[in-house]
Computed example of a mutant assay.
Amino acid sequence: MIQLHDLQFEPFISEAEIEEAIAKVASQLNADYKDENPVFLGVLNGAFMFASDVIKRFEGDCEVSFVKLGSYEGTSTTGAVKTLLGLNQQLKERRVIIIEDIVDTGNTLEEINKILKKEGVADYQVATLFFKPEAYKKEFNIKYAGLEIPNKFIVGYGLDYDGLGRNLTKVYKRKE
């Protein structure tokens, strides 16, 4: 059990399970993007650990960029996604792989979709470490999902609760 701010969290996903999920996603990306030069677009802050680990396992040439979007306050989404740090790279006619820590409602993906359409990308796919199918409300294809999980609030491995917990190597769920 751990305490972050006013909430308690209990162990949920082990380091070994996370490693296995990363290896699965990286293997799929290596097969699908062999002999290509995709742009990995990491979504900050949460995806920094997953992006690093997946990109280290990518066997071909690639480029890396980041955007920072925010929609959470405390343990729930506000529903409004704000761009906090925009693109600094030309993506016209490029193949892009969006690297997300977690896909729940899909609101962040909707905002990224608008950005990428405006940029004129050739195509894009979504790679996420965690996917919450129960919470997902959008139509975007989630091609690469490390782990499908129930709609619980989690922290660790890049995910936080009001700034705390991103550095944890395991994932914890909120104690109910």
Rank of each mutant, 00 (worst) to 15 (best):
G74S: 08
L84N: 10
G60S: 14
T169Y: 05
F9G: 12
L41I: 03
E176S: 14
Q28D: 10
K114V: 11
H5C: 07
D101C: 00
F58R: 06
A135D: 06
E19W: 07
E134L: 11
T75M: 13
L147F: 06
D53T: 08
L116Q: 01
K114A: 09
H5D: 13
E176N: 13
D160W: 06
G46E: 00
V25C: 03
T128S: 15
I97V: 15
R166N: 00
K34Q: 14
E63R: 13
G163W: 04
E19D: 15
Y124Q: 07
G60E: 12
E20F: 10
I97K: 02
I2Q: 05
A135Q: 06
K56A: 12
A51E: 09
Y161L: 13
S27D: 09
A135R: 14
D32Q: 02
K34A: 15
L84H: 07
N151I: 04
Y157F: 14
G74H: 08
L69W: 00
D61H: 10
I142C: 09
P150T: 11
H5I: 07
E63A: 08
E59Y: 01
I55A: 03
S65G: 09
M49P: 03
L7W: 01
K34F: 13
A51Q: 07
F12K: 08
T105Q: 10
K56Y: 12
V43C: 03
L7F: 05
V67W: 01
K138S: 10
A145C: 07
I55D: 01
G146L: 06
K170Q: 15
D32N: 05
K82H: 14
N45S: 05
N151T: 06
R166Y: 01
T169M: 13
V64I: 15
A26C: 04
D162M: 13
F58S: 02
L41K: 09
I102A: 01
D162N: 15
V67T: 04
K114M: 06
I154G: 06
I154S: 07
H5L: 14
E20D: 13
G158C: 04
K173W: 07
L4K: 05
G60F: 07
K173M: 13
P11C: 10
V25S: 03
K175E: 12
D104A: 06
F153P: 11
G158Q: 00
I149H: 07
N37T: 12
E111A: 15
V25A: 04
A51N: 07
Y124F: 15
V54H: 02
T78I: 13
T78V: 10
V96L: 05
L44Y: 01
E17I: 01
Y136N: 08
G146F: 04
F58I: 02
P150E: 12
E17N: 14
K114Y: 05
I55K: 05
V121D: 00
N167H: 08
K92G: 04
K117D: 05
A31G: 10
M1A: 11
K24E: 09
N30A: 12
N37M: 08
I98C: 01
E15F: 05
G158Y: 00
D61V: 08
G120M: 05
L7M: 04
L147I: 12
K68L: 09
P38M: 02
L91V: 05
V121C: 05
D32H: 03
I2V: 13
P38F: 05
L168T: 10
A122H: 15
I18T: 03
A31C: 09
G42D: 09
R57S: 10
